[in-house]
Every structure is written in structure tokens, then in C-alpha cells.
Write a protein that binds this DNA or RNA. Structure first.
Lengths: 172, 172
DNA sequence: CTCCAACTATATCGTTTCGATACATCAGTA
DNA sequence: TACTGATGTATCGAAACGATATAGTTGGAG
């Protein structure tokens, strides 16, 4: 997951650790900790996916290797048989530009279907919960409602992205 | 985090493991894995915060002890000096009903301030990112925008909750 | 009435990720 | 010069994850 994200960022250009962390953080959905970052870099180095070069002072720039590019491509184009985690999807989306347009739409469509399923069960659970409420659980209900609304917003957002992608695809 | 959540659910009534997992999952923001759940139950048992009683077949019902209630109260009323994680706040919110009304508002207000700060930096980052875009990163920008919108929605939602809480408070 | 598929339920294993902390370098500034 | 704050690499112990094993229970189809 983090390994994949790092490879994705390094596809663009070499970066050092701290910069990778910042770049990931700027996407907004994941504040990676140092305790995740450096072990991940070690893993990738050991697999030969990246290589480090001392730059200045203590700084090390990491660049992706041919091997690393191959790994990244495999990870990107293999979407898992089980439902992806929220973060898993978001990371995938961050690098969706590396996939051909039709594959992009496939990935987003699939996510859309999964979210719709979730939404349906969430609705049922909410109805059930509302009828059994002891007023003590006001905040629990509020949490469920908000989570549903977030999912709805996510779906709408995805629809927008898919529409845009189709627009670009038909324009070419 | 999970320990706290489990104690919170057990404050209500005894439950077995699987049920705890379901109840947590139904809140919508956290699908707890078995690999988290059972170790957490062991931890709590060892601390004397909960105790298990065999029910039927393999089922075990867990109930909270006096000690456990004390731990829960401490965790609930101590909010951390550093910024809480998203999930941390959501779990806290789930059990906010156990706090007096004025403390509830404090907790939510604080969260609101933190989100506002995040939002401000996110806005700056987005502006910067938009000007440097290579079109390759279309999806990265989309991700940032969506994350900002989610934060805005979260703030609005919090405002609603605070308003409702004030309403209840003044009605009593 | 039995078999079997699906669901409920507990548990563990190896790995990833987290949060806290340490520590070093460098820039600005008081 | 000395301090403060931002940048940068690193590690430690603990928490959480995802996959998998296994077993009991239940409801429906043959």
C-alpha cells in the first residue's frame, strides 16, 4: 500500500524520504508516519525497486529502478479480487493517470458499485437503529447518518470523475 | 483506541466478540478486523477491565467490570494534547453521550478548530498544486479537491451537532 | 430427513502501520 | 553567539490489518 504509493511518486521524479511523506500528506487522506515511511523505503530498496543516492548532508534521494517500474505497473493494473479499502482505492486513484482511459473507467465503475452496495446496507442498518434508539445513542445515530452522507458524496464525486474521463476519451 | 471503543459498547450491555465487531462496523467508519478485535479483548481481560463468561457452545459474553468503567471514564474525559486522528475523534463522538452537555460542546468545538486549520493549509496546497499541474496529475488534484470538500462537509456537520446540543442544553 | 451451503463465532499468524521519540543539520534572528 | 523552528533520517514497541483455519448452527433443496 505505502510501497505502491511511494513507487507511484517516484515514477515522476526522484525524491527524498521527507518529501515523499509531504507529497503523500498533501493528497489529504493520509498522514504517513515516519515509522511507516522508512521501513517501507528499506523494503523497496531490498527488493531492488528503488535505489538511494546521497545528496548533501544527511539527505538521500531515492529513484525508481527498471525493476521498480515493473512492480509499479503490476500493482497498478492488478485490482484485487476482494473489496479494496478506502485508502487503497484513493492511492490507486492518485496514480490512475498511468492507466489507459478505458481501464480508468473500469476501476472507478467498480468502486462505484462497491460504494452503492455499502450504501444500501448502511441505509437498512440506519432504519433499524433509529427504531431502537434510546436517545443515549443520539451521537451514534448521527455518526451513521454522516457516514452515509459521505458515501453518497463519494459516489457523486466518482460520477463526476467518470463523466470527465469519458469526455476526455471521446474528445480524442 | 479499539480498547476504548469496546469498553464504550460494553457500557451499555454485555456482548460477545463478533457482536462487538458488527456494532463497530455499523457505525460506518471502521471495519475492525479479527486480528485487531481478539487481541484487544485479551488486553482488556488482562487489565481486568472486562470479564468473559461462557454462554453457549463457543460463544463468550464479555461484560465490563468496575475497573473497566473507571478506565472508560478516564479515557473519555481526557482528550489528548495533540491533534486526534479522524478515527480517534469519531470513536470519541460515538460515546459522547456519556459526557455532560457542556463537555460535549467543548470536544466538538475543538475538533472544529482543528479541521478549520487543516482546511486552510489544504486550500493553500491546492492553489499551489493547480498552478504546477502537468495534466498527468489530474487525479491527484481531484483527490485534493475532494478531500477538501469532505473536510468542509465535516465542519458543517459538526456545526449542526453543536447547534443541536446547545438546543437540548437550553431546553433543560 | 439428510446433506450442504451460508452464516455465526473464536482464534492466530506474519506483516504493515502507527505514534512517540531521538537526534542531526541548517536558516534566520535576537 | 545562542536560540528557535523547520527540515531531515532513523528506530522502538505497540496497535491494527488481512488472510486463513476451524468449528458450531441454521435453513432450505433434493
Amino acid at each position: 500500500m505505502l510501497d505502491f504509493a511511494i513507487l507511484g511518486l517516484l515514477m515522476e521524479r526522484p525524491r527524498h524520504g521527507y518529501e515523499l511523506r509531504r507529497a503523500l500528506g498533501e493528497l489529504g487522506f493520509w498522514k504517513v508516519s515516519f515509522g511507516s515511511l522508512y521501513p517501507s523505503l528499506r523494503r523497496l530498496e531490498k527488493r531492488g525497486a528503488i535505489k538511494a543516492t546521497k545528496v548533501s548532508g544527511r539527505r538521500k534521494a531515492y529513484e525508481i529502478t527498471r525493476e521498480g517500474i515493473a512492480i509499479f505497473d503490476t500493482l497498478l493494473s492488478t485490482n484485487p479480487e476482494a473489496t479494496e479499502t478506502d485508502r487503497g482505492f484513493q492511492v490507486r486513484l492518485a496514480f490512475l493517470g498511468h492507466l489507459p482511459s478505458d481501464r480508468r473507467i473500469q476501476v472507478m465503475d467498480r468502486r462505484r458499485r462497491e460504494l452503492s452496495t455499502q450504501l444500501k446496507t448502511a441505509r437498512e442498518i440506519l432504519i433499524e437503529a433509529r427504531s431502537a434508539t434510546k436517545n443515549e445513542d443520539r451521537y451514534r445515530i448521527a455518526l451513521m447518518e454522516h457516514s452515509m452522507q459521505s458515501t453518497e458524496a463519494d459516489i457523486a464525486w466518482l460520477d463526476g470523475l467518470v463523466a470527465a474521463e469519458r469526455g476526455v476519451a471521446s474528445a480524442t
